[in-house]
Every structure is written in C-alpha cells, then in structure tokens.
C-alpha cells in the first residue's frame, strides 16, 4: 500500500537526520531491554488484534454459518457453506443496495472533493479573518453525526422544513419536494447531506497540501504568464497530486462504510431507496437477527473497499510513472 511509503516519507521529513535511537546499551541489546521494548508495543497490538483482527476473522467464519438468534441460546451455528452468500446475492434488495452504495460513494466523493478543493483554494489567499473563518468550517465535521442528521431531518421536512420554505420563496417554484420520503429524491438528499459533512475534512487536508507548494513556483509561473486557471492546472494540480491520492482513497474507504448518516436520515428507506451494503448488513444482522447473512454482506463490503484501494493505487502509480 502506497500509504505506508507516504507515511514513512512524512515521518522521515519530520525526523530530519534522526535515525532511530539505539537501545540503551549499544551492541549489548540484552533480553531484558528487548522485552521492555516489546512491552511498549504489545498492549496496542493486542488491542488492535482483538478489536479489528478478531472481528474480521470472525465475520469470515460467520459468513459460512447459520448464525441466528437460536445460536445465542444453543451455542450452535451449523456450517452452511456458501448459502449465506447465495441468499444475500440473490435477494432483490442486494442489487439496489449495491447500486446505491456506488452512487452514494461516487456522488459524495465528487461533491466533497470539488467543493472542498474550491474552498481550500479560496482560503489560500490572505484576507482579514481568513484563519478564523477557515477554522469554523470544521464544526460540521466535529459534532456528532447523529446530531447533524437530526437537524437535517427537520430542515428537509416536506411541509415545514426550512429548505422547502426557501424554495417556495423563489419565483416560479410551486413544488415542495419530498426530500426524505420520496423514493427518487431520498438518495439525492442523503448524498447532499453527506457532501456537507465531508467538505470540512476534504478542505482541511487539501488546504494543508496547498500550503506545501512553494510560492516561488507561482512567481516563476506568473513570469511565464501562468496565472489564474492556468496556474492551477499546471502548478497547483500536479503538485497537489500526492495529497489528492490520500484524500480520495481515504474518502472512498470511509464513505463505503458510512452508516450513521443514512440511518439518521432515512433508516435506509423509503422502500430501500437509500439502502447501502453497510446499512443492509446492519439491518440483516441487528433487525432480522441473521448474523450469518449480515457477516456475508460485511465481507462483501470489505472486499469492495480493498478492491478499490488496490486498483486506485495501482492506476495512480502508473500515472505518476508515466
């Protein structure tokens, strides 16, 4: 994974010339010192294994088992081979959930990235209050997601929501769209709210990347007539590329597993129109109590996420090499 290299580079930069500190007695790295060193790392590794490693393995196993409520009483989860996967993949909801997952992820990422980048580029200028305003933009991202979805539910309310009240103030607008209760609009509304939630993160990281681009490049570019859009295309965008990779990969990986936003706004409804693989996995496990099928859906989600990361990073590496 290229992220590791990026992290190493970043760490190396921060460290300067500093190589890792050697053990207290150079050459004489005795057993006790080594044990102490391992003890520094062991609790965290144990935690990560228990709360990430174990669940991943357990889900793979559960995916092959009939794991239902009766399992909790009898302790028995018979092996069923690929039954969970066939059941899940052939269900009518799955196709819809897969499509929704792709649309939700693509729509959210494009919106968050474009708006986040535009705002980041804007805030690169210095003007009175710029730093203060830039920090305020983080608020939507820092508050609990469920609190944000609660207020959005009221904003998007068909009859009394503030969005529709603003819309009807416009000339020629007579309709009051059912943002969260129409099967065609609900996904659009959910994507819109998720874009709003993601702008702060995208903007902040991209702003950090912009700050690292030396001004000499822009000064030299300006001499050659590259200003405005051309400066962005030929200087900003190529220089920003590593940060863009990080933002997009993290963005997609995080968006694929989003649950709070959708549950908070629509619970996956109406009529599964906002159901994604993540919310479907939740519903199957914790509402229908079929943990085997829920695990199968979770595993499919992990595979999607993994496939995206590998394909994107490989494509990106090739593009950089060329």
């Amino acid at each position: 994974m290229a992220d590791v290299h990026a992290a190493e580079r970043a760490a190396g930069r921060a460290k300067g010339a500093g190589a890792p500190v050697s053990a207290p007695r150079r050459g004489g790295r005795n057993l006790r010192t080594r044990l102490v060193e391992v003890a520094f790392l062991a609790p965290a590794v144990a935690y990560l294994l228990l709360f990430f490693g174990y669940p991943v393995v357990k889900n793979i196993v559960m995916g092959f088992q009939a794991y239902t409520t009766s399992t909790f009483y009898t302790g028995e989860a018979p092996w069923v081979g690929l039954d969970n996967y066939t059941a899940v993949l052939s269900s009518a909801v799955f196709d819809r959930a897969l499509l929704n997952t792709v649309l939700f992820t693509a729509g959210s990422i494009v919106g968050q990235f474009v708006l986040g980048l535009a705002i980041a580029v804007f805030f690169r200028r210095r003007f009175p209050l710029s730093g203060f305003l830039r920090s305020l933009i983080l608020l939507p991202w820092l508050i609990p997601m469920i609190a944000a979805t609660a207020v959005w539910r009221w904003i998007l309310d068909t009859d009394n929501g503030v969005l529709n009240r603003l819309l009807t103030l416009l000339p020629f607008v007579e309709v009051r769209p059912d943002w969260l209760t129409s099967t065609t609009l609900a996904l659009v509304a959910v994507i819109g709210v998720n874009i709003w939630l993601g702008i702060p993160f995208n903007m902040t990281i991209l702003y950090g990347g912009l700050q690292e681009i030396p001004d000499e490049l822009y000064e030299a570019g300006a001499l050659d007539g590259a200003t405005g859009w051309r400066a962005f295309r030929h200087i900003t965008w190529p220089m920003l590329r590593p940060v863009v990779t990080v933002v997009l990969v993290l963005g997609v990986v995080y968006t694929l597993k989003v649950l709070d936003v959708i549950l908070g706004l629509t619970n996956g409804g109406p009529a599964n129109s906002t159901q994604t693989i993540a919310t479907l996995s939740y519903a199957v496990s914790f509402r229908q109590f079929d943990f085997g099928q829920g695990a199968a859906l979770g595993n499919i989600l992990v595979l999607l996420s993994l496939a995206f990361a590998v394909v994107y990073l490989r494509m990106n590496r090739r593009a950089v090499d060329e």
């Binding site: 709360f51 990430f52 174990y54 669940p55 991943v56 357990k58 889900n59 559960m62 993290l250 990986v253 995080y254 694929l256 597993k257 649950l259 993540a278 996995s281 939740y282 496990s285 914790f286 943990f291 829920g294 695990a295 979770g298 595993n299 989600l301 992990v302 996420s305 993994l306 990361a309």
Partner: peptide, 11 residues
C-alpha cells in the same frame, strides 16, 4: 481504517 464498523459490531 478499511474495516467497516458494522463488521466489528457484528462480531
């Protein structure tokens, strides 16, 4: 970072 919360919760 790639492991979905629902996978962790499920197990």
């Amino acid at each position: 970072q790639m492991v979905p919360g629902i996978v962790v919760a499920n197990a």
